[in-house]
Design a protein around this nucleic acid. Structure first.
Lengths: 197, 197
DNA sequence: GGCGTTATGTTGACGGTGTCAAGATAACAA
DNA sequence: TTGTTATCTTGACACCGTCAACATAACGCC
């Protein structure tokens, strides 16, 4: 029996995630509707509800996937770095990830899930795991090179905020153009490095 | 004749802006619908369309108002600063503005207008004017205290990205709590200042 | 004052959205 | 074979932004 005519799809869960990602890239979060998604998957409007509790859950699943990718980037950096972590290189990779997957990035950190929606427990877990790893890596780098009484956690938060803010400005198209991104990031890194002993 | 029964509202334009701001604060951008807004203003569904071309135009008007406020903060800082500009103080005021008006801040810099919508020409003007002033003020501060071949514009972009990123993380509730905000901002400022000669 | 033009406000309608309820179908376990 | 359960369906509801057509009032000109 041909797949298209079966009453049960067979692999709808994964198909939905795939098509949702495609739709996301084509039309952005605003263009991602469950109904369009269902149609693309060749299934009725409410079928997705048997695989995701609601739209928020679907979006969280997408964001969780994206965090896994970001996590692998961080991990790779930590490994290859050894005792010579290259911050500039990490920032470049981070910016690349964000600007090449702007819709996923929006989902990962954006209001859609964190403010207007409700992040899944799983999403919270992976999101904070990414940050923790980053903080640890950065902590190792700045170890003993900071002024006394400086909390490494604060440095991690501040530097992440810098990179994140840059991503947001570039992605949303405010104040910083895509061409300027590299230069600005170099400046940001230079500022941080200049502050180290 | 009592105001409530008049066919013509008389001051709908301003009333809409006011009520929209109220609705924004109560329910966020997602909760701001033209229909609810019209009802609050005591007017029919489509009446607002005679004062704003569409929802995007209304949102842009709100964002423009908010930029005017931010602008006055920046201006006040520039004036009172003289030759001793207090960056830390500016950052504190900026963060206050952003966290006390999170929905307006979202509108000012968020995807709703800049990515999924279309910023008005007027909005673009005021938005870039704010940044330009900030960049000039910061430029005066760091004048001659930067390593050679450092573009002040890049420093302005990088530092704005830092503050902005911090705001976003705090507002959306990711990685940085409201209580940590002050400490993180101090750390960020310290990093920048440490890099100056 | 009368009268046309324009600004402003109205109802009706259309296509889109998320999601619930009730029923159909198939897979699976006993 | 016979329940039980997972999956998928249609129907419905309440929202949403916005267009078209029409009603009302204000304003300027004779």
């Amino acid at each position: 029996m041909p797949k298209a005519e079966r009453y049960h799809h067979g692999d709808l869960h994964d198909t939905l995630l795939q098509e949702a990602n495609a739709l996301l890239n084509e039309q952005g979060v605003e263009g991602l509707s469950l109904r369009k998604l269902a149609e693309r998957a060749g299934v009725s409007r409410t079928a997705p509800y048997h695989h995701f509790r609601d739209k928020n859950a679907l979006l969280c699943a997408l964001a969780t996937q994206a965090f896994a990718e970001l996590d692998s980037i961080i991990e790779r950096q930590l490994e290859s770095a050894g005792d010579h972590p290259d911050i500039q290189n990490f920032v470049i990779e981070y910016l690349e990830f964000a600007t090449e997957n702007p819709e996923q990035y929006e989902l990962m950190f954006g209001r859609t899930i964190w403010k207007s929606g409700t992040p899944t427990e799983e999403l919270k877990r992976v999101a904070y795991r990414s940050f923790r790893r980053y903080a640890e890596g950065l902590g190792a780098l700045v170890q003993g090179r900071l002024p006394a009484a400086t909390d490494p956690l604060r440095v991690a938060q501040a530097s992440w905020a810098t990179i994140h803010g840059l991503c947001r400005l570039v992605i949303d198209g405010v104040y910083v153009d895509r061409e300027d991104m590299q230069a600005v990031s170099q400046q940001a890194v230079a500022l941080i490095m200049a502050a180290l002993k």
